[in-house]
Write a protein that binds this DNA or RNA. Structure first.
Lengths: 212, 212
DNA sequence: GCTTTTATTCGTCATGCGTTTAATTATTTG
DNA sequence: CAAATAATTAAACGCATGACGAATAAAAGC
């Protein structure tokens, strides 16, 4: 047996789709995002996605083609708005960058809508070289590029990356590994703790200097 | 055909093993460590390990039993000395903890012998819940426990974890994702950059206060 | 020298994967 | 109403995986 779902073959009668009930296509995308987030690219199974979307595996392929394309459609499309939001963030005084950067980062990881695709990318990048390449490009070209421009000094790129590693490390421990007490700490406390460390990397001082 | 290696069946004649050439058992463990480090627990294939060790897959099973046991033998056994080394590290003045901790961490990640099993654990913990649980226990119970005891204040656990996230974030970016320029920065520079951030988390100040 | 133990490969089982082709049913278009 | 198109499932293909039993050959122990 492959998977006799009991539903009959062929196009179903006009769904009488409840208001707000997502169409099949959307259900597949949602399930895909969840599965990619939970397992990472390689371990996510199309068959499991289909099961979660309550649909035949072949239908997934019918809509989206091969696995890579499904990943792009489900995750790539969901990550893009996050990237644009970050890229569109107005530049701040260099002494405020630490706080801005920290809160922006925590913000996108706290909202479940944006967390899921980010989780998917992070998990995937850790075991899949293609995903890792995409991740690298995103981080350096999109996320850090503008930040680097506004920082003085020749080692701005390194400093920006060290600030980023602090935040990614927190994301890893808090959202992936669910390490306590970090995972249960409220965001505000976290932001206050992290800001000085991030600012330290960016400007060499843990806070906005009083005089200058 | 499964894999006709051309070698014949049965126990081979007394290996005439070159001096220093590792026995079969060791070759399997090495290959396993490398594969687990490269792909993480779930994606590492026993058959690939056997191929790398130039040995029949059934032999892996013969020596180590099922996959979990192989992981424990290859990775667990290699991680333990690292844990012991860290646990045995003499306690330092609280003002020097940042530097000690940072350099110890970078040290174990820089040496290839210790990096490989750490990579294996990290990669595995990200996609496998069992591995994640082991990772959590190791970090909180073994790595951070003593550190937390020596730190004053009620939020010592959180502060220690934040320091750890900074370092794990660096490990991720440098050794897993190979993000530039971080991946090519020399360790000494890195240590100097990281120490204040780690110390900041631990004591609230980026360096040892001059007076106290 | 016979027996037991050890090292090794072979063959196979059940399972799961991504993908493809064909069949089936409903809706839309002409 | 007929033809085209869209949505859906069923069935299968080819491949990889973890696991294991059985066979075989050498070495070690008695």
């Amino acid at each position: 047996m492959s998977t006799p779902t009991g539903r009959r073959r062929g196009r179903p009668p006009r769904a009488a789709a409840q208001d707000g009930a997502p169409g099949t296509r959307e259900r597949i995308l949602d399930a895909a995002r969840a599965e990619f987030a939970r397992r990472g690219y390689d371990l996510a199974a199309i068959r499991a996605i289909a099961r979660a979307a309550d649909v035949n595996p072949a239908l997934v392929h019918h809509y989206f083609g091969p696995k890579e394309a499904l990943f792009a459609a489900a995750v790539g499309a969901a990550v893009e708005p996050v990237s644009r939001r970050i890229a569109g963030e107005p530049l701040a005084e260099v002494t405020e960058l630490g706080e801005r950067f920290t809160r922006l980062f925590l913000g996108v990881w706290e909202s479940q809508d944006t967390r899921e695709p980010l989780l998917a990318v992070l998990r995937s990048a850790l075991s899949n070289e293609t995903a890792a390449a995409i991740f690298r490009r995103h981080v350096t070209d999109l996320l850090l590029a503008r930040l680097v421009e506004t920082l003085p000094g020749p080692d701005a790129a390194l400093r920006a990356e060290l600030a980023a590693t602090q935040l990614v490390g927190v994301a890893l421990a808090r959202y992936v590994l669910r390490l306590e007490p970090l995972a249960s700490t409220d965001v505000e406390t976290l932001a206050r703790r992290l800001t000085p460390a991030v600012q330290l990397h960016l400007t060499g001082r843990p806070d906005a200097p009083a005089g200058a």
